[in-house]
Nucleic acid binder design. Structure first.
Length: 308
DNA sequence: CTCGATCCCTGGACGC
DNA sequence: TGCGTCCAGGGATCGA
């Protein structure tokens, strides 16, 4: 599941592998995760890749400025979703199953986008549109100063876990690194961000940066299927202290790690080290009778989307 | 404004 | 072995 460290790893690998190459042609498979497939097919051929960088959880493949103003400052924006992979491969290598975008490069290799679940997103954007897209996001956690981080957390009234995951507040953090950071900072995921003291917020900030940096050094976490640009899995999953460790013992105090749902996401934490909030012993209410009704609605929606 | 719930998708785990 | 069911999760969207 590509979050900041995984995307950073892919960006570095791609920068080494394809910077300077020119795109010769584009072949698309399924396109339901592409913003404007026709535009992409029209604009990419001939473009030279000058830089591959990370922006939050996005990869930005930046192109050489074209002759027209419209083509200045253009990029391919790629979000890997849950299972996306960008692999530079030779044409003799069999494309993996679920390869949906193939970009032929001028050295004969292909840059292939593979995404079984198609939770990702691909968009060709230029000029103002690119600019507007990027400014929707909050601060980069590795670049933000403590003051900016705290201002971001205090900007909204919700739980710390939800704040860390909110890309418009902080860009790049997902479920794994949110849990890992909160465990290290000894802060319960359901605490309200507003109720965290200066000291606690400082701890979260430091833990977040430390965890992200270490994870980048280990080339990210491969839980099920993350692969970097060289097709290699990361190793940071071997260093997880909270995420995915339900029922196992806390490395700090020996208490059993628990999983609760916060902000709609599995949240692994140590119930002893990470004291639960006093503020809101709020219980989620999910009437069981709704189940059948929602399933009825689900099938109706699927039918509708297939038509339109 | 802010919240939770729901949905998208596929493969892997699990139960029988 | 094979089938059905559940779950993972980021982000868009919607109704409360």
């Amino acid at each position: 599941m590509p979050e900041l460290p995984e995307v950073e790893t892919v960006a570095r690998g791609l920068q080494r592998a394809i910077a300077g190459r020119r795109i010769v042609s584009v072949t698309l498979g399924k396109t339901d995760f592409i913003d404007d497939p026709a535009l992409m097919e029209r604009k990419l051929p001939g473009k030279r890749i000058v830089l591959v960088e990370r922006y939050g959880k996005f990869l930005l493949i930046r192109f050489e400025a074209g002759s027209t103003a419209e083509d200045a400052d253009s990029a391919l924006l790629v979000h890997l979703g849950m299972t996306g992979m960008l692999l530079p491969q030779t044409t003799v290598e069999m494309p993996r199953k679920h390869t949906h975008v193939v970009m032929l490069l001028d050295d004969g290799r292909e840059l292939r986008y593979v995404d079984p679940r198609r939770f990702g997103r691909v968009a060709y954007l230029a000029g103002e549109k690119l600019h507007n897209e990027l400014k929707r996001f909050g601060v980069d956690p590795l670049e933000a100063r403590l003051k900016e981080f705290i201002a971001g957390i205090r900007s909204r009234k919700t739980r710390i876990k939800a704040l860390l995951l909110d890309q418009s507040v902080i860009r790049g953090v997902g479920n794994i690194y949110a849990d890992e950071s909160l465990w290290r900072a000894k802060v319960h995921p359901a605490r309200l961000g507003r109720n965290l003291g200066e000291r606690e917020l400082t701890e979260v900030y430091r833990a977040l940066q430390s965890v992200l940096r270490k994870a980048i050094l280990h080339r990210g976490s491969s839980i099920s299927d993350f692969l970097d640009a060289e097709g290699m899995p990361g190793e940071y999953q071997l260093h997880h202290r909270a995420y995915g460790r339900e029922g196992k013992r806390c490395f700090r105090c020996g208490m059993v790690i628990r999983r609760v749902i916060v902000a709609g996401r599995s949240s692994y934490h140590c119930p002893k080290c990470q004291a639960p909030p006093r503020e809101a012993a709020r219980k989620r209410k999910t009437p069981k009778g709704r189940l059948s009704a929602s399933k009825v609605r689900k099938s109706a929606k699927i039918r509708k989307s297939r038509q339109g």
